[in-house]
Nucleic acid binder design. Structure first.
Lengths: 335, 335
DNA sequence: CTGTTAGCGCATTCAG
DNA sequence: CTGAATGCGCTAACAG
């Protein structure tokens, strides 16, 4: 019959005729307690179903052994793999995770940050809702002031003094552009994220550089959206309905965008010549499906891994500041 | 220049020549404070970058507004969608999430549970590492004793008195079996999870029922693994290397198993007649890829949604016990 | 090896 | 509307 009242070390102490401090020690520094009493205490603790109170414990020291993660989309395979990597490494070093999915909302991001800070997380992995230059979240000052190790991933918060793990977006755009041109495509429809997003800007810039190097005339059209499927789907659908002439290639600036474009193409059916499709970021399980889209692959697991390790190093080694890590993508085109 | 020392309400109180309690009230029950002082307090709080200390706050009351999630695999799309749903609903009702990926390890599950309990989570979504009848995790007694609302998902912990949201595994196996038979397949290779897993048992049982109803002779072979890709891949590879004659159909008992089998088939190449493939659970973005595998689809987002709502209802409404919800799968076969 | 004292930051009494 | 006192559960620091 479960009792409502929580069991505390005081309860245990009473039962074994000792003071709380001895119980406390038995639980956290067993080597400082006589084996006999230790055993009794542990036994009674189990018997009473004692559970230590993390709040009381953490109220003193400032180590919560909590890592906060802020991500804009749990359902983007790009991020979920990263989170897997982070989670693995964190638990290996005995940290627990507070996870916040901001779902693209700056308000939620702000609230998430406040919650994390109030829970005294020991470190933060931050992937911001928006990488616009103009995005200056409220919480930034607090965060800096709190003096907590932060490591950014993928999306760079401009003006933030935290190191991060990022992709080489310019190079990825360029590699993709080169490939598409090599395939003989000249008229390219790029589906991008938000117009002000630096990631999109850089990827487009890379693509443009590749096009500029082409001796033949080329044509680039760009449709902006965000980094999710739905707008990409809508943009692509509208485009193909309006234009009689398809581009030679559709160039998706991230995987969800590409999937949205593919969905549009599928829905419109094979009434028309389908353009080639190229993606930045690889589709999940792409190696398994027969249908392989050529892409620039980014090792997301590795990104997560680098980020969490940098973070843990910063946490456990206050002198260490860390510095940006740039991950290169590699072209993957099925033969 | 970030100061190391945390700002507390005492600091604020000093600055405004008030006592801590007034500051406390200003922060939590603003209507009880004169507007004038309220404003000053809030201003100073911002100025000092005050962050409330969740530990101190929660030490008294027992509401942490924390929800714990235990899942065996963050990278299984089946679960990551569920977590997305949970996260959305939780934040909507102002709960934060502590996430634990046990990666299939009972020890990690145990540790995760202890951490969650010590953080006084208000409720727990539990998807256990193993649904064997014989699995009796250490923490169960503590968990029951702690008297915290728990809702299980997908994997049922036998003997646990918590309600849950589950799939109708028998029916899903049966539906799949029927479909495969209708396609004319008679020799079926089923790739299952662990032999003792009840989910696997039930899905197989459904499949067998379908086969039993078939008038013609049928043949069923079963290879056991776990619910991840790797063993499925290895089993399938070994099988196909050893057997000259392919089965008519490969029947994957969850999506990762199916993907593993597909990978094996791809690697072995088209040196041989490829069997048909059927899956329980749908591949991510299956609607988008050209290559559609017929499957029994389960609405995972909906599962997560049901689970978190049941949990939140239980938390906020102590009388309410909740009861099992069974979700039906539906057959999805491209035309 | 064990106990005493004290305090972490906040919010709940109860008084003014 | 504001304050004083008190305690939540636990663990340093210092005895003994």
């Amino acid at each position: 019959m479960p009792k409502k009242s929580k069991v505390t070390i005081t309860d245990i102490a009473r039962r074994v005729n000792m003071t709380t401090i001895t119980v406390s020690r038995a639980l956290t520094k067993p080597e400082l307690v006589k084996k006999e009493t230790l055993d009794r205490i542990l036994e009674v603790a189990r018997e009473l179903n004692y559970v230590p109170n993390a709040f009381a414990r953490n109220l003193k020291g400032s180590k919560s052994r909590l890592i906060g993660i802020i991500t804009a989309s749990l359902d983007n395979p790009f991020y979920s793999e990263m989170i897997k990597a982070i989670s693995r490494a964190a638990k290996k070093r005995n940290y627990s995770i507070m996870l916040f999915d901001t779902d693209g909302s700056p308000e939620l991001e702000n609230k998430a940050m406040e919650t994390m800070l109030s829970y005294q997380v020991d470190g933060i992995i931050l992937s911001v809702v928006s990488d616009y230059d103009e995005y200056h979240p409220q919480y930034l000052e607090q965060l800096i002031h709190a003096n907590i190790p932060v490591v950014q991933v993928d999306r760079r918060l401009s003006g933030a003094p935290f190191p991060g793990v990022y992709l080489d977006n310019l190079a990825s755009g360029y590699k993709g552009g080169r490939y598409v041109l090599e395939q003989g495509h000249r008229h390219i429809l790029a589906l991008a994220g938000p117009e002000q997003s630096n990631i999109s800007k850089q990827r487009l810039e890379g693509l443009k550089q590749a096009l500029a190097e082409c001796k033949e005339p080329t044509r680039l059209e760009v449709l902006y959206g965000d980094y999710t499927m739905q707008p990409a789907f809508e943009n692509a659908t509208a485009y193909f309905k309006q234009h009689k002439q398809s581009p030679d290639a559709v160039f998706g600036l991230n995987i969800l965008i590409t999937l949205g474009a593919l969905k549009a193409l599928r829905k419109l059916g094979n009434k028309r010549h389908n353009p080639a499709v190229f993606s930045i970021d690889e589709a999940p399980y792409a190696d398994i499906f027969d249908f392989n889209i050529p892409c620039v692959h980014h090792d997301t697991y590795q990104m997560g891994h680098s980020a969490i390790n940098m973070l843990l190093d910063r946490i456990e080694n206050p002198g260490f500041e860390g510095s940006d890590i740039i991950i290169e993508g590699d072209l993957r085109a099925s033969v």
